[in-house]
Design a protein around this nucleic acid. Sequence first.
DNA 1: TTCCAGGTCGTTT
DNA 2: AAACGACATGGA
Length: 261
Amino acid sequence: MQIKIKNFNLKHTLESGQFFRYQKKGEWYYCQERDKLFKIRQISDKIEFYGTDTNHIKKLFGLNVNYDKIVKELSKDPTLKKALRKYNGLRIMQRDPWETLVSFQCSIMSNIKKIQLNMNKIAENFGEKIELDEFKSHTFPKEGKLNDIEKLKESKTGFRAKYIHEMNKKVDEKYFTKLGNYEQAHQKLTELPGIGPKVADCICLFALGKMEAFPIDVWMERVMKETYGVDKNAKEFAQKRWGKNAGYAQQFLYHWRRNEQ
DNA sequence: TTCCAGGTCGTTT
DNA sequence: AAACGACATGGA
């Protein structure tokens, strides 16, 4: 399957710390989400994929937004303008909420490579075998299935195992449908073990389509201080400045700060 | 070997 | 309410 799409960069989008279960094989990215395994590649303004459908691809890679409008509004900011030009086509993904929740629980005091390891191990330990071409992988377990703390520890999640295990008791398939608006969703998510304001914002942004979310980690703290001279109320500052585009501003600043400096 | 990493939690000031 | 230290583990 092939579709033509403007203002999309597969590499920037996949490799910007939003999504963790992918492996690059030549020019193809093999990607896993829930029970799906698909491969995708980009050739100029076309993407080609096998193993899933167009609707899934468009949703997952954030292709159903008015990108030109977002870029136009954020370009008023000089720092963002540089990042927007350099990383044009970087999108905010819209992932499966359950898998996103687990992956950002794993992100606490960790790094992208280790999160990838954790997610792959969890799939190996709890999921079912799946393959595409010669590529073998595992599905991600459904809500409620992460009910074995020993297997979670075998997945190298360390001290996070107990958080994931406890969270698993409180979240079912319906949980994500009744989270409400951004403020309500953020509040409810922080009631789960191992989820504070930062992780809640990641879930809001990368899975729930709450585009005003603005996750602040150590990297974002640095950018906000260096570029805008804000430290204590950086999130409020950002949401007031960029509104519903705060999430996009965050992703560009984050990617820019990690790659440039 | 030693140090640190897309923070959160429980405990002290 | 603000400021600590502990936390598991892989990678540099």
